[in-house]
Design a protein around this nucleic acid. Structure first.
Lengths: 339, 339
DNA sequence: CTGAAAGCGCTAACAT
DNA sequence: ATGTTAGCGCTTTCAG
C-alpha cells in the first residue's frame, strides 16, 4: 500500500485529522502547519486514496452519464459525445469525475436505480433518448440530482436542458433578411421531428416579425435524408415564383438540396442562397461551402455540468431550461452578388 | 443511509460475512442460505455501497480513459468515441466501469500519476495522441495496468493496440484485383501519416503478391484534405495511361477525388473505380456511393477492454498488438460494367 | 488551532 | 458451511 495519511501525519509531527483538514482546506488550520504538512505530502508523494475519501465522506464526486452507446453511436450522433466532453470539462474543473455508462432505453431504469442505490455517483446525466416514463418517475420520486440532456418528448418533471431550436430559427431569419433575401423557403423534417419543427417555427416567427412572412408554398416537409432533401428541393424549384433562398433543417437535407439545385443548372449563391443548421458533418464539404446556424453543443454540456453540480448541492432545485448558443457562420452559399 | 449489509444479515438471520460471501459468489455458501439471503436483499432492496466495496477490496473495478476531449473532438475524431463505446461495452459486461478524463498531452502525465496514486482506477486506457515519453516511462516504471489506444509513434515498451492498416491495404488490393481492376492508383497522405503509409504499404504488398505491382507513377501523396485529393487526382488524370481504379487513403481525399474525376466529365465507376478506407463520414453521401475498406473501430475498443482486464489480472503481461478487423463494403463506385 | 477517536460499509483471514 | 473480527484510509465530531 502506498503512503497514507498516517505516514504524512507522523512525518509532519501532527495528527491525521490535521492532515485531513489541510487536504480539505479547512479554515481552522494555521498557515505554518498547513505549509509544513503540504511540504511533507510533496516529499512523500502523497495522494489521498480516492475510495477511502469517497467512503468516508459518503460521496463520490462523480457523475454518471447514461446514454445509448450502441455500435455506430459515435458516428451517428457525435453531438452526444461533444456534450459529454463539455460536461466532463466542467465537472473536472470543479473536482468531479465523469463515469460513462452505456444503456438502452429498456435498461436505463435499472442502471439508474443501481447507481442511485449503490451511490456510485452523486449525480446523473441522462441522454433523452433513453429517458422513459418509469425512469422519469424514479428521478422525481427519489429526488436524486439529475439532468436530462435534451428536452423530453413527454410531459415530465425531470430537470432537463436543451438547445433552443426556435431561437436558432430566428437567427436564420434575421440573417437572411439582412442579406437581402426575401422569398425564403424551408425544407425539413415532419412535425414529429421536434428539432426541425422548432427551427421552422423560429424561422416563421422571425420572418413574420420583420414583416416578411413565410409563404406556405415554400414549406416542404419530408425525411431527414439526402434523398428527400433532393426531392423537396426539386419540387420547390417547379414553382413559378422561385424562392431566393432555401433554409434546410439539417445537413443531410442540405446535401440533397445543393445537388438538386445544381442539377438544374442553377448556381449557389447566384440563383439561390442555401443555409442550413448545424456545422456538422457536411457543411464545409459541399461546393460552395454552406452558411450555417451553428449550434454550440459543447456549451450545452458545460451548462449541463454547472446545473448538475448545483443540483448536487441543492437537490430541491428544479431546472428546465433551454440554451441559446447559436450563431451564424457565414460562408459562400448565401453570398448574393447584389448586396 | 440506505439499507446496509448488517440489515440484510439481521433480517436473514446470518452474519454479515455470509451476506458478503453471497454477494461475491463465494463457493462455501450453501444453496439454501444463498437463496434466503438473496431473497432478503430483494425484499429490502439492498444494493451494496460501491465506495465501501472499493474501499474494502482495495480495487475500484473502474478503468480510466485518458483522451483529448477538447472542443470539437467528437466531430473531428468520432473514431475515438466509438472505441471508447466499445471499451465501455466490454468492461460493463465484466463488471467494470469506465471513467472518462479529458487531458491534453501536457497534462496526461500528471493525470495518470494522480489516478495511479489515488487508485481511482484499476487500469488506464490512454489515447495515443496524449502519450508522451514521460508518460510512457511512468507506465512501464509503475507497471500499472494500461493499454494505449493506437500505436505509439516512438519506441516504447507500453502496451498498445491498433488497427492493422497494412492489412487493410491488402484487403483493398485483393478486392480490386478480384473485380478486374489492373491499373490501380493510390492517393494519400505523406510518409508521416502512418495510417496512410501503412495502407499504401499493404496495397503495394497485396498487388505485388498477386503479380500486379503498383506503378510508382500512380502514387501521389499530399495532405489529407478534399483540396489535395482533388489536386492529386487531377494530376493523375493527366497521365497518358489512365488508371482504372483510384484508392484513396481516406474519406476527405476521396471527396476531392470524386469531384476531380467528375469535373473532367469522367464517370465513376464507368471510367474509373474509386475505393477508400473507412466508412466515415462521407462514403455514403457521394454520388455514386463509395466502396470502402471499413475499419471496425468498435471492435478495437472491445479488444482493448479484454486486454486491459487481463492486464489487471496479471500486470506482468505485455501486449503490443494490432487488430485485423477490416472488410470490404462494396458500393457502386467500383462496379465495373465489364465483370 | 490541534488532536483523539468514532465511525463509514464492506471484505477476508481466521476460527469454529 | 458459517460466524467473529480486524482492518481498509479517510472524515468529522467533540474536547481541549
Amino acid at each position: 500500500m502506498g503512503v497514507t495519511i498516517k505516514d504524512v501525519a507522523k512525518a509532519a509531527g501532527t495528527s491525521v485529522s490535521t492532515v485531513s483538514k489541510v487536504l480539505n482546506g479547512h479554515y481552522s488550520i494555521s498557515q505554518q502547519t498547513a505549509e509544513r504538512v503540504r511540504r511533507v505530502m510533496e516529499e512523500l508523494n502523497y495522494y489521498p486514496s480516492a475510495s477511502a475519501q469517497s467512503f468516508a465522506r459518503g460521496s463520490t464526486r462523480t457523475v454518471a452519464v447514461l446514454a445509448d452507446l450502441e455500435r455506430g453511436a459515435a458516428f451517428r450522433n457525435p453531438h452526444l459525445f461533444e456534450i459529454v466532453s463539455g460536461l466532463e470539462q466542467t465537472l473536472r474543473g470543479r473536482g468531479y469525475r465523469l463515469f460513462l455508462r452505456g444503456v438502452d432505453a429498456a435498461g436505463a431504469y435499472q442502471a439508474a436505480e443501481e447507481i442511485i442505490s449503490r451511490k456510485s455517483a452523486d449525480g446523473l446525466a441522462i441522454h433523452v433518448s433513453v429517458l422513459t416514463h418509469p425512469l422519469s418517475a424514479l428521478l422525481t420520486r427519489t429526488g436524486f440530482p439529475h439532468i436530462v440532456l435534451g428536452m423530453p418528448n413527454f410531459d415530465s418533471q425531470v430537470c432537463w436542458i436543451d438547445n433552443n431550436n426556435v431561437y436558432s430559427g430566428t437567427v436564420a431569419a434575421s440573417f437572411l433578411l439582412s442579406q437581402g433575401y426575401r422569398r425564403i423557403a424551408f425544407i425539413g423534417g415532419q412535425y414529429y421531428d421536434l428539432g426541425s419543427a422548432h427551427r421552422l417555427q423560429g424561422l416563421k416567427e422571425g420572418l413574420q416579425a420583420r414583416g416578411c412572412p413565410l409563404d406556405d408554398r415554400y414549406i416542404r416537409l419530408g425525411q431527414s435524408t439526402r434523398a428527400d432533401g433532393w426531392a423537396m428541393t426539386d419540387r420547390l424549384l417547379d414553382e413559378k415564383d422561385l424562392p431566393d433562398a432555401i433554409v434546410c433543417a439539417n445537413n443531410y437535407i442540405a446535401l440533397g438540396c445543393v445537388a438538386a439545385v445544381q442539377e438544374r443548372g442553377m448556381g449557389i449563391p447566384e440563383d439561390v442562397g442555401v443555409l442550413t443548421f448545424d456545422d456538422y458533418p457536411f457543411s464545409r464539404f459541399t461546393e460552395p461551402e454552406l452558411t450555417v446556424v451553428d449550434i454550440d453543443v459543447r456549451d450545452l454540456g458545460n451548462r449541463a455540468g454547472r446545473h448538475l453540480l448545483e443540483l448536487i448541492r441543492r437537490p430541491t432545485l428544479q431546472v428546465q431550461t433551454t440554451v441559446t448558443a447559436s450563431n451564424i457562420i457565414e460562408r459562400r452559399s448565401t453570398r448574393k452578388k447584389t448586396v
